[in-house]
């Protein structure tokens, strides 16, 4: 395990330049370049807000802002976009980079690290854009905003854990790559992002407790929309799950790495 981190450190230059290159390549020959990374989720928020605000806006108690529903949507989307982007990219990571893995010798662990770095970069840009939009909608950040950092770490860990496991399995069982996007869609709708948690019928509330993304998204809502310190107890549980999944993912990655090149 120590060797893993040592080789990662030796290849830090490569990791860094990969993240930068990906970013640069996005700007090349496109007028708005990286801005599309921000425009896309914002457009999605705008669509949901337009379509659903009349149905759902009234059900958001505790916020004194006429754009409350839009704020709520954006906070949830921020967390979800990081989560799903990491998973989706990890899912096909080893297949996409198969050619490189077959031809060049380099520490394979750099690949997921590059994905995480690149996703976090997008996330930070989206976050800054959201702060701007929030400010335009009269919602200003408070000191509770710092809780975003550990929360981001947790959601990243959760996504990396799940993504690594699925990405490794996908190399051997390609059905995984087909089924996961569907499951992610289901998961999205089973997480209170578009709708407030209050509209869930009482008998389904326990099901929510099984969803490790629920505490995270709620915490994002608390911080960004309700301007209060999030409920850390549930988040801690998710953090523990994330840690477990990440270790499992790393373990599987290490066991599978020698065989991966054989089947790619």
């Amino acid at each position: 395990m120590l060797g893993l981190f040592r080789s990662l450190w030796e290849y830090r230059g490569f990791v860094w330049s990969s993240i930068r290159n990906e970013f640069v390549a996005r700007f090349a020959r496109s007028r708005l370049g990286g801005l599309w990374m921000i425009i896309n989720p914002l457009a999605q928020v705008a669509i949901y807000a337009l379509v659903l605000s009349n149905v759902l806006a009234a059900k958001l108690p505790g916020i004194d802002n006429k754009y409350a529903y839009a704020l709520y949507l954006m906070a949830g989307m921020l967390a979800w976009s990081l989560f799903s982007e990491i998973i989706n990219r990890c899912l096909t990571l080893f297949i996409d980079q198969g050619n490189l893995m077959k031809k060049m010798r380099f520490p394979r662990i750099t690949l997921p690290v590059i994905v995480v770095g690149s996703c976090l970069l997008n996330y930070v840009l989206l976050f800054l854009a959201l702060l701007l939009v929030f400010a335009l909608l009269d919602q200003f950040p408070g000191p509770q905003m710092f809780w975003i950092i550990p929360l981001t770490a947790t959601v990243t860990a959760l996504a990396v854990g799940i993504g690594l496991i699925l990405g490794v399995l996908n190399v051997f069982v390609r059905d995984i790559g087909q089924v996961v996007p569907i499951l992610m869609q289901v998961w999205f709708w089973f997480t209170p992002i578009v709708y407030p948690v209050t509209i869930i019928p009482e008998q389904f509330k326990n099901v929510m407790d099984l969803n490790p993304m629920f505490p995270i998204v709620s915490a994002f809502h608390d911080i960004l929309v309700y301007a209060k310190i999030p409920d850390l107890q549930d988040v801690m549980l998710t953090a523990l799950i994330s840690l477990g999944l990440m270790l499992l993912g790393l373990f599987m990655f290490r066991r599978a790495a020698p065989e991966m090149v054989d089947v790619l």
Binding site: E10, Y11, G13, F14, S17, S18, N21, V24, A25, A28, R29, N99, L100, K103, M104, F106
Partner: peptide, 28 residues
């Protein structure tokens, strides 16, 4: 055996050199 692995078409030759050499394990 296989030349040009890891080259990205949008980057300049110089940038690709840094990147490809990084892939070979060299520091900046």
């Amino acid at each position: 055996l296989e030349l040009g692995m890891g080259f990205s078409p949008e980057l300049t030759g110089r940038q690709n050199v840094y990147h490809a050499a990084g892939l070979m394990g060299f520091s900046a």
